[in-house]
Design a protein around this nucleic acid. Structure first.
Length: 624
DNA sequence: GTAGGGTTAG
C-alpha cells in the first residue's frame, strides 16, 4: 500500500495527458495501470479533486475507450459534489458516446446548462455510429431549432445519417446548409455528401460533388468509387479507378475492397488477381473485410479453388467470411461442400440470418432438397431464429425443385408475409421443369400482376405451354406481353480476355467483329444441329415467322459471347461467360451442345447461379 | 474536444 501511495503522490507528473511516447498503446495492462492510478489519486484527494484530476482521468478513459473507469470517474464527481464545467461535461458526453453508452451520454448532455456545438456533435455522432440514424437526425433538427449552426464535424456526421435513414430530402437540405456555411468543399463534408448522393441512387450528383472538391484524398476517392460499385456501375467504377490511380491516388484496404466489388460484378478475374497480388506484395496488414472481398471476387469470377485458398489462409474469420464461401459453393451447385462448410462453421462461429439464407439457397442449387428442409427446421427449433421472407423464399424454391408444387403453394399460404415476385418467379421455373401447366398458369397470373415488366416471366410461361404443344397459348402469351407493353431489359453478356471485357448485346448490330461472329455462329449452328440440337422457338415472343425466330435466337447475347470466345482461344481454354439476366432455355441447350461438339468447357454465370457445361451436360442439372 | 469511404443473402 505504501509503495502505491508513493508512486501516486509523485507530484502531479502522473498527469494522464497522452501516454508517454515510448509506451505501447496496445498494452491494456499499462493503460489500465494509468487509469487505476488516476482514479486512485482522485479517491485519495476525495473532495479535493480538481478539474485537472477529472480531466486527466477522462482523457485516459477516452483514449482507452474505457466505459467502466469513465463511469467511476463520473461517480466520483457526483459523490464529491463537483459541478463540472461546460468543457468537462462535454468531455464526459464524448466519453459516453464513444463508448456507445448513449443513455449515459444523453444523461450528461441533457443536464448540461449550456451546450456547445462540440457537445451536440459528439452525441449526434454517437447515435450515427450506432446506426441510430433517426435519433441522430432528431437531435440535429433540435439543434438547428435552438439556433446553433453546425460546423464541418456536424455536417460530415449528419450526412451519413441522412443516407443511413434514406432521407434524401433532408440530405439536400443539409447540403444547402453546407453551401451557406461554406463547408461544401470541405474534404470530410464533401466525401460524406457525395456518399450520401451515391447511396441514394444519385450517382451524377455524387460525381458533381466529387469533381468540385478542391482536394481529394483516399477517402473521397474511395467513396465515389464505391458509389459506382454499389450501384452496379462496375465498368464505370473500374474506369474511374484506373484514371485516379494514374493521377496518383492513394489506396488502402477500403479502396481495394470497393474495387473488388466492381471486379466481382464484372467477373474480371485478371484484374482481381492483380489486386490480390498488389495487396500481397505490399504486405498490407491483415484485414478480414478485404479478405472477405477477395473470397467473393474469386468465387464470383468462377475460381472457387482460389477463393478457398484465401479462406484457408486467413488467421481469423468473421461470419461474413464463412457466409461468402458458402454462397460461393452454393452458386456453383456444390451442395455437399455447402453442408460440409456449414458444419465446420458451427464449431467456430455463430451462424446468422445470412448464413441460413446461403445454406438454404445452396441446398436448392445443389439439389439437396430434404437436407435444406431439415436445416430450415433446425434454424427455427435449435437456433431459435425467426425466419425472414428470404428464408421462406428459399423453402419455396426447395419444394418447387422437388416438384412438390402444391406443397409450395400451401407453404406460401401459411407464410406471415405477402409472397414476393422472386418467390412466384422461382415457382414458375419449377412449373416449367416439372411441366405443371395448371400450377404454372396460377403462378404466372400472380407473378404478372406484381411484376408485369419482366419479359423473362412471359418467356418461361411460353416455354411451359410449348412443352405441352399448346401453341395457341404460346401465341396468347405473346399477345399478353404486347398488351402490357413490356419493356425488356436488354440482354447483355460478356467475356474477359486478356483484361479486355468483350460485351455483347442481344442482336448486336454494332460489334466491330460482327461479320466474323455471324459466319462463325452459322458454322456452330450447323454443327450442333447435326448433333441433334433443336431450337426452342417458344423463347421468342415476337410475332414473326419461324425462320425469323431462329435468327433472333441466334442473336442472344450469350451465344454471341460463346462464339467470340471459341474464335479467339485454344481448345483447352475454359470459356467464362457472364450474363446480366437469367439464361434462356434455348441458350442453355446451345451451350450444352457446344460443350459436347467443340469439346469445350463453358462456365456461364447468369443472374441466378453458375452453369458449368461439360460434354453436353450442365452442373445445374437443368434446374434453374 | 466533435468528422467522411468497406465485405456476405434475395
Amino acid at each position: 500500500m505504501k509503495k502505491i501511495t508513493k508512486t501516486f503522490l509523485r507530484p502531479i507528473r502522473y498527469s494522464l495527458g497522452p501516454l508517454p511516447p515510448n509506451s505501447n498503446p496496445k498494452s491494456p495492462r499499462l493503460l489500465n495501470g494509468h487509469l487505476d492510478s488516476a482514479l486512485l489519486h482522485m479517491a485519495l484527494r476525495g473532495a479535493e479533486a480538481k478539474f485537472h484530476d477529472y480531466d486527466a482521468a477522462i482523457t485516459a478513459c477516452v483514449e482507452r475507450r474505457s466505459l467502466r473507469y469513465g463511469q467511476r470517474a463520473h461517480a466520483h464527481m457526483i459523490k464529491a459534489r463537483y459541478r463540472p464545467s461546460a468543457y468537462l461535461a462535454t468531455r464526459l458526453a464524448i466519453l459516453y458516446a464513444k463508448c456507445r453508452d448513449m443513455g449515459g451520454a444523453r444523461n450528461v448532455f441533457d443536464e448540461m446548462p449550456e451546450r456547445s456545438i462540440v457537445a451536440w456533435t459528439a452525441v449526434i455522432s454517437g447515435y450515427a455510429q450506432m446506426g441510430s440514424h433517426g435519433e441522430a437526425l432528431e437531435l440535429f433538427v433540435r439543434m438547428l431549432a435552438t439556433g446553433i449552426l453546425p460546423n464541418e464535424f456536424t455536417l460530415a456526421t449528419i450526412l451519413t445519417s441522412c443516407s443511413g435513414a434514406c432521407k434524401l430530402d433532408l440530405g439536400r437540405q443539409v447540403h444547402s446548409i453546407a453551401i451557406k456555411t461554406n463547408f461544401e468543399s470541405h474534404i470530410f463534408v464533401g466525401s460524406s455528401l457525395l456518399d450520401m448522393y451515391a447511396k441514394s441512387n444519385n450517382i451524377l450528383e455524387a460525381r458533381k460533388v466529387f469533381d468540385f472538391l478542391p482536394e481529394r484524398d483516399v477517402v473521397s476517392c474511395t467513396a465515389i468509387l464505391s458509389g459506382y460499385a454499389q450501384l452496379g456501375l462496375d465498368e464505370e467504377a473500374l474506369q474511374l479507378f484506373i484514371e485516379l490511380y494514374k493521377e496518383g491516388m492513394h489506396c488502402n484496404y477500403v479502396t481495394f475492397t470497393s474495387l473488388l466489388t466492381a471486379l466481382s460484378g464484372l467477373s474480371a478475374l485478371d484484374y482481381g488477381k492483380q489486386v490480390h497480388s498488389f495487396t500481397y506484395r505490399h504486405e498490407l496488414p491483415f484485414y478480414v473485410v478485404l479478405e472477405n472481398s477477395l473470397i467473393d471476387m474469386y468465387s464470383k469470377c468462377g475460381s472457387l479453388t482460389y477463393a478457398r485458398r484465401v479462406f484457408n489462409k486467413m488467421p481469423e474469420r468473421s461470419s461474413v467470411s464463412w457466409n461468402t464461401m458458402i454462397v460461393g459453393y452454393g452458386k456453383h451447385g456444390l451442395g455437399d461442400e455447402v453442408i460440409q462448410l456449414f458444419n465446420l462453421m458451427l464449431r467456430e462461429v455463430k451462424p446468422d440470418r445470412v448464413t441460413f439464407m446461403a445454406v438454404l439457397s445452396g441446398c436448392s442449387h445443389g439439389g439437396l432438397v430434404d437436407e435444406g428442409l431439415s436445416i430450415f427446421d433446425y434454424m427455427i427449433k435449435e437456433k431459435g431464429l425467426k425466419p425472414e421472407i428470404g428464408h421462406y423464399g428459399c423453402v419455396v424454391d426447395l419444394l418447387g425443385r422437388a416438384g412438390r408444387i402444391e406443397k409450395a403453394l400451401d407453404f406460401i399460404k401459411s407464410m406471415p408475409f405477402e409472397p414476393t415476385a422472386a418467390m412466384w418467379g422461382s415457382l414458375l421455373g419449377a412449373c416449367r421443369v416439372h411441366i405443371n401447366i395448371p400450377a404454372g398458369e396460377f403462378v404466372a397470373k400472380r407473378l404478372l400482376d406484381i411484376e408485369p415488366e419482366n419479359a423473362g416471366n412471359y418467356v418461361i410461361l411460353s416455354n411451359i405451354y410449348a412443352s405441352a404443344s399448346r401453341w395457341q397459348d404460346v401465341v396468347d402469351v405473346r399477345k399478353l406481353m404486347m398488351e402490357k407493353a413490356v419493356i425488356k431489359e436488354p440482354g447483355r453478356s460478356w467475356i474477359n480476355l486478356d483484361k479486355v471485357i468483350h460485351t455483347f448485346y442481344s442482336s448486336d448490330r454494332f460489334h466491330p467483329k460482327k461479320g466474323e461472329i455471324e459466319a462463325k455462329i452459322k458454322e456452330i449452328y450447323a454443327k450442333i444441329k447435326e448433333a441433334g440440337f433443336v431450337p426452342d422457338l417458344s423463347c421468342v415472343l415476337h410475332d414473326v415467322d419461324d425462320e425469323q425466330k431462329e435468327r433472333m435466337l441466334l442473336g442472344h447475347s450469350e451465344k454471341l459471347a460463346i462464339t467470340f470466345g471459341l474464335m479467339g482461344t485454344p481448345r483447352s481454354f475454359m470459356l467464362r461467360i457472364t450474363k446480366n439476366l437469367r439464361v434462356c432455355v434455348d441458350c442453355h441447350n446451345f451451350a450444352k451442345f457446344v460443350s459436347m461438339v467443340y469439346e469445350r468447357e463453358i462456365s456461364l454465370r447468369d443472374s441466378n447461379r453458375f452453369h458449368l457445361f461439360v460434354k453436353g451436360a450442365c452442373s445445374c442439372g437443368d434446374y434453374w
